[in-house]
Design a protein around this nucleic acid. Structure first.
Lengths: 110, 110
DNA sequence: CCGCTCATATAGAATTCCTATAGAAGCGTA
DNA sequence: TACGCTTCTATAGGAATTCTATATGAGCGG
C-alpha cells in the first residue's frame, strides 16, 4: 500500500472531476483513474459515487458526453467540459482556495 | 463587508468546533463567534447548523457540557473537550492535512 | 411593558456520498 | 463453444451532514 486513503469531503468530488476533464477529455472510469493518480492515491472514487456525479454535472450543463470506444475496445461514454464547465471549474477552484486558506488560518490559531 | 463567505464543506464543521474548544471552553454561540474569528469571517456557522452538531458530538463522547451563565448574564451551556475529543481533534486534523495535500497535488497537476 | 438581544432548540428539506448490486460486452483460453 | 475475467456503465437505497425557517425563554433598556 502506498499512502493513506480518505473519504471525500462532500463538495470536493465535482472539483476533482472538473480538474481531470480540464486536463483531457476522458470516459468515466478514466476520470476515476486520473483522480487517483493526481491525488497520489488519496482519493479513490468508486463507480457508485462517480456516475451519479457525472450525470448530475451533465444535467447542470458543465459536461457534455458522447459514446465512443475505449482504449480497450469497450463501449465508453466520453465526457468533456463545456464553456460553463470551465467557468464552474474556475469558480470552484477559487472557492477551494478560500476554504483551504480559512482552515489553515483556523488551525494555526492559538 | 470584510471578506467572502462560503458554505462549509461537509465534514469541516466538526474540526472547527474541536479546534475552537481546544483553545478554550465556551458556550454554543461563543463557539460560533470564535469560528468566525479564526477563519477571518469565511465561515459563519448559524444556530441551525451549530446546535445539532454539538449534540451529535456530545453524543459521540467528544464533548462534555454543563449549564452556566454567559458573560451577558444569560443561561448558557458550556462545552469542553473530553479526552476522546482531544484524540478526535488530532485525528481529524491529520485527515484534513492529508486532504489538503491531495487537493493541492491534484489542482497543481498538468 | 415593549422591543431588542442573547442563547438554545428542533423540524424538515436538500445535497452528496457510500454500499451493494446488476448487466452488457470484449478477451483469453481450453 | 463455453467459461471466467476484466472493462465500463448504471441504479437503488440508505446514511450523514448542513441549510432554512421557526420557536422559546430570559435579561436588558427605555
Amino acid at each position: 500500500m502506498s499512502g493513506k486513503q480518505t473519504n471525500l469531503l462532500q463538495g470536493t468530488l465535482d472539483l476533482l472531476i472538473l480538474k481531470a476533464l480540464a486536463l483531457e477529455q476522458m470516459h468515466g472510469l478514466g476520470i476515476s483513474n486520473r483522480i487517483a493518480q493526481i491525488t497520489r492515491g488519496t482519493f479513490v472514487v468508486k463507480p457508485g459515487s462517480l456516475f451519479p456525479a457525472l450525470h448530475r454535472m451533465e444535467e447542470a450543463g458543465w459536461l457534455a458526453s458522447s459514446w465512443g470506444e475505449s482504449e480497450n475496445n469497450r463501449r465508453a461514454k466520453y465526457y468533456k467540459l463545456t464553456a460553463a464547465g470551465r467557468r464552474q471549474f474556475e469558480t470552484e477552484w477559487r472557492q477551494w482556495k478560500t476554504i483551504a486558506l480559512a482552515m489553515r488560518s483556523a488551525l494555526d490559531a492559538q
